[in-house]
Design a protein around this nucleic acid. Structure first.
Lengths: 192, 192
DNA sequence: CTCGTTACTAAGCAAATGCTTAGAATTATT
DNA sequence: AATAATTCTAAGCATTTGCTTAGTAACGAG
């Protein structure tokens, strides 16, 4: 049935996500997108409707990305407090190479959009939900391993560490490594 | 000496700051600014050079604004842990009226700009410095009042609470009151 | 090979962007 | 009242914005 697409939506979407991640929504133009996606505007709009829809898809794509490239250690079967500490250490390590980080695409989106668009807010909350569930599993494991006290309020601590990650996302853009290390250190120490 | 300005720079700057606070840098157009500032483009450029300079001035203006309207309790002579707890409680209270908050202008700027512009990064760091100093004073008072342990690492805790505020700024845009309460509760409990 | 459907190219659209400018209006000084 | 300096009005500038469209190319089905 007719001509076939010369690109795969999943791969051009990944590229779009990277552009939005680097520049945010407003500062990303469709011209930038067509360059980085290596397709032209017609194809963008035919596959993704409009810029906002492409952005929503990028948020979902980002979630898949971090599952594989950022949170893999935290998502492993039985991951506990050690995994969390390693995650933060690795994050700090990755900083001295790059300088300031790009932060988290979704948290950047939350800062940029806030509550203004209901559909975007939905995507943001879905991402937060994913993080919170991941953290709750991890904390449950940590209790089972006796890494943290039995009476730990897991729901509460999951909200706390979600907030910590939101802080870390924006703090890592301008604050230096030592300050970030202090920040993380206090967050981890309090749960032991 | 010639014709006199029909506006005061300090008052139109305050208005400009409010627009940037509500919409961020990119999503704020010069047309929006001239409406809210009640002066036209010529006057904007003649008083503030260009959009970016106006934004930098707005960041400084915001610092003065929060000194009076947000952090007044924390800046009072001898303010300690009680003041900090009250601050967070008041913040939570203010949320159920508004729905999601606008967050902090400077933290929004950090999320939007990151490290990309050296001058903006400087303004952001100046603001962070102001917050950190305020927190250190507060924590020093708290130690003196025996509200928190004598051996408290004040530098470390100041970095921690600065991070907490960054997290709170973005979290308060989409997360609900109960989740935010959990987040704050853990942060406060750990220091006692 | 032809036909019908879909994808691609490239040009183009109106609207909005940040910023400038020519000319009129207003003021303190002389 | 005349002058010189500055502010204001409003139109206009080139460029960029998100998005569309007319024409052409590719491909599977018959």
């Amino acid at each position: 049935m007719s001509r076939v697409k010369a690109y795969k939506e999943e791969v051009v979407l990944e590229n779009a996500m990277q552009v939005f991640w680097s520049h945010g929504y407003e500062a990303t133009s469709v011209r930038m997108l067509e360059k980085e996606m290596s397709i032209n505007q017609f194809s963008i709009y035919s596959s993704f409707t409009n810029k906002k829809t492409l952005f929503k898809r990028s948020i979902r794509q980002y979630r898949e990305y971090v599952k594989q490239h950022v949170f893999s250690g935290l998502l492993q079967e039985g991951a506990g407090l050690n995994a969390l500490e390693t995650f933060f250490e690795d994050f700090l390590e990755s900083l001295e190479v790059t300088g300031g980080s790009k932060g988290c695409l979704v948290i950047n989106a939350a800062a940029e959009w806030g509550d203004k668009d209901a559909e975007i807010a939905l995507e943001i909350n879905a991402y937060y939900h994913f993080i919170r569930v991941m953290l709750k599993n991890l904390l449950t494991n940590a209790v089972a391993k006796h890494e943290i006290p039995l009476e730990t309020d897991i729901e509460k601590q999951a909200c706390f560490f979600l907030g910590i990650m939101q802080g870390l996302s924006v703090a890592s853009k301008t604050m230096n490594k030592d300050q970030l290390r202090d920040y993380i250190s206090v967050a981890i120490t309090q749960i032991k």
